[in-house]
């Protein structure tokens, strides 16, 4: 039925793939989150010169599939003569676009950033009025208010929604194999074509994703306990 030998024989390629997936998703999420914080503040601003460009950005990247974005960055840009000339000339910046890892990282980071901006912006908009009024009453400047009250509160309250985004990114990263990267899915495809055993190859890949998702869910539970404790239902003392 299930030939475990195929898995044990190729275990190291799966491990390598898992490491690549972890790097890709980890770095893309970190970069996306860092960029998303200032963009989210711009997104909720009343100034059209600030919020319009960010609106356009999130609209565009949430409105097109990540696979298409990746294919454009990897195959699309490489089609142009100027890009090939830049590679020929060893231009350090454009050479980055020759590497499939960088292309995937760029596409993933820009994509997750767009979603994270909307998550954070929603969180900022739904901040309780009382918190803002209290900060104003204390005489805080708008920047101090943002730094001390708005952002910490919004970031905390976006943890549950953001955990979904992290899980989506992990699953979405499976498209990295479309640009020759041997991530978990790429390793599974190689095993499949070598042994003609799609069931074993893909079921095991699925198990690895499942395990990684469990780990992410666990980490976010810890984060929620740490930063959202004040929003949890209060524990009642058992009656004697």
């Amino acid at each position: 039925m299930f030939e475990f030998e195929i898995i044990t024989e190729n275990f190291s390629s799966y491990l390598d793939g898992m490491w690549l997936t972890a790097q890709l998703v980890g770095i893309a999420l970190a970069a996306g989150l860092v960029m998303a914080v200032p963009l989210a503040v711009m997104r909720v601003s009343n100034n059209p010169f600030l919020y319009r460009p960010v609106w356009l950005y999130t609209y565009f990247f949430r409105g097109t599939p990540m696979l298409i974005q990746l294919l454009v960055v990897y195959y699309g840009l490489a089609q142009f003569q100027w890009m090939q000339d830049a590679w020929e000339a060893q231009s350090p910046f454009w050479l980055l676009f020759r590497e499939p890892f960088f292309c995937a990282l760029l596409a993933f980071a820009v994509n997750t950033c767009a979603y994270t901006v909307e998550i954070l912006a929603g969180s900022i908009r739904s901040i309780p009025h009382g918190e803002i009024e209290a900060a104003q009453a204390m005489g805080m400047t708008p920047f101090t208010r943002l730094r001390r009250i708005t952002l910490p509160s919004a970031l905390r309250r976006s943890i549950p929604a953001y955990s979904n985004e992290v899980i989506f990114m992990l699953q979405g990263s499976a498209i990295a194999s479309a640009v020759t990267l041997v991530d978990i899915t790429g390793a599974a495809r190689d095993v499949y074509s070598r042994h003609f055993a799609p069931f074993e190859a893909f079921v095991f890949a699925g198990l690895i994703y499942l395990l990684m998702t469990f780990a992410i869910v666990g980490l976010f539970r810890l984060a929620e306990q740490r930063w959202l404790a004040h929003l949890m239902p209060r524990k009642t003392q058992a009656a004697h």
Binding site: Y75, A78, Q84, R98, P100, T180
Partner: peptide
């Protein structure tokens, strides 16, 4: 290539479609 070159230090880059392999050959990847 995998059997006779891959283990001897040649990097085999695999594609789902033949055209994609040619595209990366043309672009110099």
């Amino acid at each position: 290539a995998t059997k006779f070159w891959g283990k001897e230090g040649v990097t085999i880059v695999r594609y789902a479609k033949q055209e994609e392999a040619y595209a990366d050959l043309k672009s110099g990847r």
